[in-house]
Design a protein around this nucleic acid. Structure first.
Length: 287
DNA sequence: CGTCCACGTCTAC
DNA sequence: TAGACCTGGACGG
């Protein structure tokens, strides 16, 4: 999806577009199989992200509070193509599947592929802390659980496990592992023990993507910058994912993993078996 | 036209 | 650990 950086930007976008606005009603596109959402009081919206989850806090609009403030949390996943868009009255947005209404426009959840989901609830307990906004808890969650079987798997796959790396997706794992000097196919436990910089990279690479306004891949568009600005910064940032000079391999989950082909050097078994950076790999990174 | 591919979960043999 | 869930863009014949 949208990964960690895009979710954070999405939350900010929602907050910016909904600030001071009073909503009255929600409509679900019948094309979408998701749950019907009914909000039968005038409300305000506030968004927050945690990894790849987005929480919309729905509460009674201040001017309409009579007895008590109602507060509900609508939890959203963006799927592969989900994003929000402010839609002015009169215009129709294709692939809008959940629409929050005001008199001056609507906030639309737009999702071409319809993998996005929503439900009333709270943060999913099966997903870890956010690597940017709750870094210490994120690191602790992994360190405290390194003995678990999940960490037997190669680090490139472990980074996709949302229980430990909430928010890291296919492009972030590639960019994170490219920036550390470690065999991406060694076990997660060994990699995280020998190379704790992986934790810092999860935060800093995600932050970099966030600063650049997120990925301009397919449907998702950063609403705050021009396409030219996005493209320049983004192509400088994307060193590995989608780069034809890199190697790729299908992981056990059927996702294409992008990595530095230096780790394919077979005559230098040292790097594969010990997991330590080969001299070539090291030289490659430092230059 | 067709086939492959895409920032992600889910659930069912 | 396959598939299922989806649309549409890129590219091949």
């Amino acid at each position: 999806m949208p990964e960690l950086a895009e979710l954070k930007l999405t939350a900010e976008y929602v907050n910016k577009m909904t600030e001071g606005k009073v909503f009255h009603g929600v409509a679900k596109n019948p094309e979408h199989k998701g749950e019907e959402i009914t909000i039968d009081f005038p409300f305000v919206i506030e968004a927050q992200s945690r990894g790849k989850e987005l929480m919309l806090t729905i509460s009674t609009a201040p001017d309409f509070v009579t007895d008590q403030v109602e507060v509900k949390h609508l939890m959203m996943g963006m799927g592969m193509s989900g994003h929000f868009k402010w839609v002015k009255p009169g215009s129709v947005e294709k692939h809008a599947h959940l629409v929050f209404k005001t008199d001056t426009g609507t906030l639309a959840f737009v999702d071409v592929r319809r993998f996005g989901k929503w439900k009333w609830g709270f943060w999913n307990k099966d997903r870890g802390p956010d690597p940017i906004s709750n870094y210490q808890a994120f690191v602790k969650n992994v360190i405290d659980n390194l003995h678990k079987k999940d960490f037997d798997k190669p680090i490139c796959e472990v980074l996709m496990n949302q229980r430990w790396f909430n928010g890291i997706g296919n492009y972030l794992r590639a960019e994170i592992l490219y920036r550390v000097c470690i065999d991406p196919f060694m076990s997660g436990r060994e990699a995280l023990t020998k190379c704790p910089e992986i934790f810092e990279e999860c935060k800093s690479v995600s932050e970099m993507a966030y600063q650049l306004g997120g990925g301009e891949l397919k449907d998702w568009k950063n609403p705050f910058e021009t396409i030219e600005e996005i493209n320049q910064g983004w192509s400088d940032f994307m060193l590995c994912y989608g780069n034809p000079k890199m190697a790729t391999k299908m992981d056990s989950n059927g996702r294409r993993f992008w990595y530095d082909p230096i780790w394919n050097i077979s005559e230098d078994n040292w790097c594969h078996y010990s997991g330590m950076p080969s001299p070539q790999a090291y030289a490659n990174k430092v230059k």
